[in-house]
Design a binder for these strands. Structure first.
Lengths: 132, 132
DNA sequence: CATAGACCTTCCAGCAGGTGGAAGCTCAAG
DNA sequence: CTTGAGCTTCCACCTGCTGGAAGGTCTATG
């Protein structure tokens, strides 16, 4: 399978697939004409990467997961540890963003948004008033 | 005030402060010895940057906000528009992360996390089962 | 058989937003 | 006078791609 098909079937751009090969996440065969030739196993790896990346795993985490993926003697607990750490990250990010949301909402709501030059958002960000 | 003090008082690393100068976000004076000399106005800008960046504004958005900040004839509505757009971004990010959280939580909860080699997380990420 | 256009290849550059380190100057304390 | 902290510039590197140039290849049509 050519890279275009692999791209379409994995949901990843061809550029990204070549990049993943560059950094050693997969090594597809080459056809006689020099074109990359993706097997169904390669396609599995690509789909795995697409999902894991979109779930917020870093490329390095994906690399770890892929090495566990290919290892039939791996322990389920190893994988769970990575996923659980990621879940903690996500929890933290949501909490941070929610904090920002509250702060920014306060700023926006206190702004009259008209033609007067004074603006509570600018004042708030400049630290003239304490937002906490 | 030297860069070290400015760093401590603004909450930004000295490296980052120099970087912000490089990209034209501020232009502190220079003392006779060549050291950067930060005024209280500079410090305001740095604190502004620290807060705005931590609130998720991009550097370019900060640049816009700073130009509005210094412009006494700016319209409050301009600032409100930027902040409101940012709030939408944050809402969207929180929704996305919450989606990921649900998915990943399902995977982690379905994983027995023991010494057996089969692992629902790997299986889920590899697309063998549909998660939706 | 020629040619057009879609596909593939490699390589090089750049994006955001910094961070790390080397080499060298300056300042304050003892 | 020396030591160590702090400052300077410059250059490279980080993540995770993305865009583009220059060129080879494949397929359909005339």
């Amino acid at each position: 399978m050519n890279i275009g098909d692999a791209a379409e079937r994995s949901g990843l751009p061809a550029k990204t697939i070549r990049y993943y090969e560059d950094i050693g996440l997969l090594k597809p065969d080459r056809a006689g004409n020099g074109y990359r030739d993706y097997s169904t196993a390669d396609l599995h790896r690509l789909r795995f990467l697409q999902r894991a990346r979109s779930l917020g795993f870093s490329v390095e985490e994906c690399r770890q997961l892929l090495s566990l993926y290919g290892d039939t003697r791996r322990e389920s607990a190893d994988v769970k540890a990575i996923a659980t750490a990621k879940l903690d990250d996500i929890d933290r990010k949501i909490r941070e963003l929610t904090g920002l949301q509250v702060m920014l909402r306060q700023l926006v709501d206190s702004c009259h948004g008209d033609h007067r030059p004074d603006c509570p958002i600018i004042d708030g960000l400049s630290g003239r008033h304490d937002l906490h």
